[in-house]
């Protein structure tokens, strides 16, 4: 990170316990620079989703501070913070009672945009995520394929152009081909938009495909956080185990 540039997102000595007392994060430190794509990799239960929820204040830390754009999440009004932070959920969470354009238009409507501006924005976003506006805008979520749903989820998160995007296992439920397609789309979009992105995944392969920085979580600690090449070369056995789990196809 260049000196003097404030981190877009910063975890400073954060501890978090589940209500039952189970420790999830312990003295956790991490900073993400503006425009970076950080992939957090770890096994299920390593606290990855908790990390994201601490950023948009769905959860508050027991100790330490999470700062977004330099401001402690405790001091952010929750609604304003959340509208500056796009959130793509693991199971998409599209509203089943709204059409595609209804879903994408939710936050603009909450922000009180005039209807024609919302309509233009929906058209623009559908183009951005590579869906045919005329064919999809009035469809219902259950009429879409898994890949289309996921794209709509991304479009919805980007609707009011938030500077930060959080993605929780965004492409986990998709078949490998669709996933590869969306990885390409993601790069195309990110090249244009330059958001600060945190992606949470248990798949090291996906982390390499998407991120320019990779963090490895183990037992509530960040055991490595570096550029993908450096992670690939890590001698740490805990990192190596995750790397070894990436399938490599034997060539004839």
């Amino acid at each position: 990170m260049p000196i003097g540039e404030a981190a877009a997102i910063e975890f400073a000595d954060v501890s978090f316990r589940r209500p039952g007392g189970l420790r999830v994060l312990e003295h956790f430190n991490l900073s993400v620079a503006a425009g970076d794509v950080l992939a957090l990799v770890g096994r299920s239960g390593a606290g990855k989703s908790t990390l994201l929820k601490l950023v948009n204040r769905l959860l508050l830390p027991d100790d330490g501070a999470v700062r977004v754009e330099g401001r402690d999440t405790r001091e952010w009004p929750p609604v304003r913070l959340r509208r500056r932070v796009g959130y793509v959920l693991q199971d998409v969470g599209l509203f089943p009672h709204m059409t595609v354009s209804g879903n994408i238009g939710v936050v603009p409507r909450l922000e009180g945009w005039p209807p024609d501006r919302i309509a233009n924005r929906i058209h623009e976003l559908l183009g951005l995520i590579g869906l045919d506006a005329a064919g999809v805008a009035d469809r219902w979520p259950d009429e879409l394929s898994g890949g289309q749903r996921q794209r709509v989820g991304v479009a919805r998160a980007l609707a009011v152009d938030p500077p930060v995007l959080l993605m929780d296992e965004p492409f986990g439920a998709l078949d490998p081909l669709t996933r590869a397609e969306l990885h390409v789309e993601f790069h195309r979009i990110q090249d244009r938009l330059r958001k600060t992105v945190i992606i949470v995944t248990h798949d090291m392969g996906e982390a390499f495909a998407l991120a320019n920085r990779i963090g490895v979580l183990d037992d509530g600690q960040l055991i490595a956080c570096d550029r993908p090449e450096a992670i690939a070369a890590s001698p740490d056995p805990r990192v190596r185990r995750l790397l070894d789990a990436v399938p490599s196809i034997p060539r004839p």
């Binding site: 948009n56 769905l58 929750p78 609604v79 304003r80 913070l81 959340r82 509208r83 959130y87 959920l89 969470g93 599209l94 509203f95 089943p96 939710v106 936050v107 909450l110 919805r156």
Partner: peptide, 9 residues
Amino acid sequence: IREAGVAMG
């Protein structure tokens, strides 16, 4: 779905 709504502000 409820969480999505809250997270969207």
